[in-house]
Design a protein around this nucleic acid. Structure first.
Lengths: 335, 335
DNA sequence: CTGGACGCTGCAAACGTTTGCATCCGGTGT
DNA sequence: ACACCGGATGCAAACGTTTGCAGCGTCCAG
């Protein structure tokens, strides 16, 4: 439709003023006469003028844009964090540039490079899996970085926002211990920060209760429902009466498998997850879990980044985990 | 760290060549002597040169960026579409600019405006809820638009990618009819394109089977689990033996409520959803549903947009729905 | 009548690229 | 010796803004 792009210059000609004046008029600079301002603004509306954020970015040297790299948006944990992040960023006039890494370190680095070239004002890495590959890169970055759910890295411009998930796992385990369970299994998650934390939280709880760990009860997993499914018969065979899962997804998979196999939850087996996904209330029985406040995590990440961008001192933030007892856990069966 | 940003000019000085040559050397233009090219590239690496995509965008007048507006990333349907979209866009060298509308028409328009100013090369609207407010805006846009899961709008630059969800709802209903059900309820979704389609699909199936509709069995909802929960006792009271839900979320809510209330599924009530969320396999019983291939929808949307951007003719795409029978549906109980 | 002050506007440079065209150089064909 | 050619490089404009500084009236005080 529009034959040619209408720029500030176009407006300038039509309004018989200089580009500078147009620029100022559009942004309500008090230095331009009210009448001129109105005239220019009216003209802008009439001609359908759309300011070019990219030209503006070039001269101002900031883009009002935050780069976010995630493992996968299809992961409900990530999606929740992202939602909180977007909300807070949007409220401050920032827009998100989203890139997916599929949990591959190599792609994560590429993503960062791409965002860098796009001159994002700040960077958020959610559940980064790049590990040590990240270290040489971080100091190079000329923008502040916030790591969500990962404390493996330090640096001048790098900040951290995370749930105290080790404590969370401990909470979950202590809950089972209080219920009288003594043989408790753990189904793990994908290599990386949080799986490590959660696992040590679990182990510490056992240790504090002076319960020797049976390493056969420490199962590997990728944080997916099938991991929980597979684990069910394994843990029953070994006589476990309870299991803490790396995350809700794993736990939900186990609940589903239990239902299909006719295993009574929690009478025969107590199951607890971590994350508090919305779906945890839809399972039968409803899932006992540990809240990780993903949306809040995202919001805090955005606010931290924005604070740093505004020149303030950035304080790392840690969110406390909170146990949510529902019906998937119960007293240990009498021996 | 870097005291000053290193630009093409910086490289030019250090390498004793003109900026033009540097620019060409960096992009492997055959017109620059191989040796010069190597020298420049080495220097670039050494000084940690990062090309400015924004400067490039300004002169090339495209940003290699696609704008996406969604209702909420926390919605698993949206998240799946987004995942497919990102994958395909990324593969073609495009990055996504993501904005959330919270299903509010006003905010959706603002989002579009914001993306426009950011000079996105194309726009994707997922499950737009802006309705008629969108119509005056669409022709104004100077970039191609792809609507996902919404056929309410037409225009020169607007294309559409959708599941034939009316057919899907009909499939679901026909399935119940074949199982002998005659009193079938429907729990609806939020105002907008797809809820309308799905509802008419449902109604058409009844009509084709010459079953009079009892309008008390047409329940309102917002596509959330609680809608399904609430609907359970209502539909049982009215003697329904089956219910099709606007989406899986609603259906899963109903299954959970049924389990809690001791209502046997599918013996007392058959429940079918639409979407085929991953969670549909974790419920007890597993949910019968209609696949909507969200990720594929996203991929197709990206490809369509990219094709149009490449100057090709853009063909709207429609994905066929496919019934997935699991255990939440069964024969109608004998009267 | 003069000297400012003040209110409004314009000039021009800058942000970091890309690219059409000109330039320069050594070599080649006649 | 001349014109010409081709390869390598440089010049300068352009993309669409913002902004420090200068300019220009007009009005008022002295």
């Amino acid at each position: 439709m529009a034959a040619m792009r209408v720029s500030i210059k176009t407006l300038a000609e039509k309004a018989q003023v200089s580009p500078s004046t147009v620029s100022r008029a559009l942004r309500d600079d008090p230095r331009v006469r009210p009448e001129t301002r109105r005239r220019v603004q009216a003209l802008a509306k009439e001609l359908g003028y759309v300011p070019s954020q990219v030209a503006r970015s070039l001269v101002l040297r900031r883009t009002q844009t935050l780069g976010v790299v995630v493992t996968s948006v299809a992961d409900p944990y990530v999606a929740q964090v992202l939602a909180g992040l977007e909300e807070a960023a949007e409220a401050a006039g920032y827009t998100l540039l989203l890139v997916t890494s599929n949990a591959q370190a190599e792609r994560e680095l590429q993503a960062i490079e791409s965002l860098r070239q796009r001159q994002v004002d700040g960077l958020v890495l959610i559940s980064s899996r790049a590990g040590e590959l990240l270290d040489p890169l971080l100091p190079e970055l000329d923008v502040p970085v916030v790591l969500v759910n990962n404390r493996e890295h330090r640096g001048a411009h790098v900040h951290t926002v995370y749930s105290d998930t080790a404590a969370g796992a401990r909470l979950a385990t202590d809950h089972l211990l209080e219920l009288g369970h003594r043989r408790i299994a753990y189904v793990g998650g994908p290599p990386g920060y949080s799986a490590g934390e959660r696992r040590t939280g679990f182990l510490r709880a056992l240790q504090a209760a002076a319960i020797p760990v049976d390493h056969r009860l420490l199962l590997p997993g990728m944080g997916e429902p099938d991991d929980g499914r597979r684990a069910l018969s394994w843990v029953l065979d070994l006589g476990a009466t309870a299991v803490v899962c790396y995350n809700d997804l794993t736990a939900l998979g186990m609940l589903a498998a239990a239902a299909e196999a006719g295993v009574a939850i929690p009478e025969q087996l107590s199951v607890v997850g971590i994350d508090n996904l919305p779906f945890g209330t839809l399972s039968v029985p409803r899932l006992t879990t540990v809240d990780q406040e993903m949306a809040e995590l995202g919001r805090q990440a955005a606010q931290l980044l924005l604070a740093v961008l505004a020149g303030q001192e950035g304080q790392d933030v840690v969110l406390q985990s909170r146990l949510i007892v529902r019906e998937s856990t119960g007293p240990a069966p009498a021996p």
